Amino acid sequence: MNIPNLITLGRVILVPVVFWLLVSGQTQLAFFAFVLAGISDAVDGFIAKRFGLSTELGAYLDPLADKLLIVSIFVALGVMGALPSWLVIAVVSRDILIVLGVMLSWLLDQPVRIRPLIVSKANTLAQIVLAATVLADDGFKLGLEGLRIALVWIVGVLTIASLAAYLRAWLRHMSG
C-alpha cells in the first residue's frame, strides 16, 4: 500500500458519495466530486510513474475505480432520466461482458492479458466527457442539450465498437 494506491482507494470511496449526491438531487456537488475524482486519477498516475511507485495492486485497482465511478454515474443518470436507458444498458452490459470474458478465460485455463484498446480508450474518454457535460448542464443549467445528444450517440457508437473489438480479440485468443 502506497500513496498512489491510497489516492485510488479514495476514488473508490467517492463512488457511493457521487451516486448518493446524484440520486438525492445535489447535481452541483456531484459534479465537483466527479471533478475531484478525475483530478485524483491524474495525481495517482503521475505519482506512481514519477516516483516509481507502480504496483500490481494499482494496476488492477486504478481501472476498477474508474469503471466503478463511470458505471455508477451512468446508472444514476439513467435512473434520473438524464441519460437514455438504452445507453446506460449498453455501457453497463459492455463492462459486464468484458469481465465475464476475462473470468471465463481464466476458468478455462486460458488467461487473457488485459490491454486497453485504442477504441476502448476513446470510449472511456467519451463517457467521461458525457458524464461531466450532463452533470455540469444539470447542475448549472448551461443549456447544452445539443451537445448532450451528440455525445450520447458518440458514446453509443464507441461502446458498441469497443465491445466488438474486445469480443474479436477474445475469440482470437480463445481459439488459439
Rank of each mutant, 00 (worst) to 15 (best):
D138T: 06
A126Q: 04
Q26C: 00
L87Q: 13
A169K: 15
G146V: 03
W170S: 12
N123E: 10
L108C: 10
V23L: 15
L142P: 06
S72R: 11
D66G: 04
T8S: 11
I128N: 08
G101Y: 00
L125D: 13
Q28P: 10
L83M: 13
A169N: 14
G146L: 12
I154R: 03
D109I: 13
L14Q: 12
S40E: 01
N2K: 02
F34Q: 08
A30C: 04
K67P: 04
I3W: 14
F34S: 11
L87R: 13
P111S: 01
A90Q: 02
L77A: 07
L135R: 12
I128A: 10
L163H: 00
S40T: 11
F51C: 07
V152Q: 11
E56G: 12
I118S: 01
V102R: 10
L125C: 15
V129L: 12
A131R: 03
V119M: 06
L163C: 05
V91H: 01
A42L: 06
F74T: 04
Q127S: 09
Q28V: 15
A169P: 10
D66S: 04
L142H: 05
A90P: 02
D95I: 01
D62K: 03
I89T: 12
L125E: 14
D62R: 01
Y166W: 00
I73S: 06
K49M: 07
S175P: 00
L147N: 07
L53S: 08
F51V: 06
A59T: 09
L117G: 00
A48E: 07
A59V: 03
L87P: 14
I96T: 11
V12E: 08
G101T: 05
R11T: 02
M103G: 09
I160Y: 05
I160R: 05
I128D: 07
R148H: 09
I128L: 14
A90C: 02
L125P: 13
F51G: 09
R94L: 11
T133C: 09
V23G: 03
A164H: 01
S72A: 15
P63T: 06
L57R: 00
D66T: 05
G156S: 05
V79Q: 09
I7C: 03
N5K: 03
A165C: 00
D66F: 07
F46H: 01
R94W: 12
G10C: 02
L29G: 00
P63G: 01
S175R: 14
I114K: 08
L57Y: 03
I39F: 08
L147V: 13
P116Q: 04
T8V: 10
V157E: 06
A30Q: 01
T55P: 00
V18F: 10
L100Y: 04
R148T: 11
N2S: 02
R11D: 07
I7S: 09
S105M: 14
G45T: 09
N5S: 07
R115K: 15
I47R: 14
S120R: 01
S24K: 10
Q26F: 12
R115V: 14
T55Y: 02
L107C: 00
V155G: 02
V134Y: 08
G38P: 00
R172G: 09
A136E: 14
R168W: 15
I96K: 03
G81W: 08
A48L: 05
L6Q: 13
V35F: 12
I70G: 05
L14I: 05
L167E: 14
V129N: 04
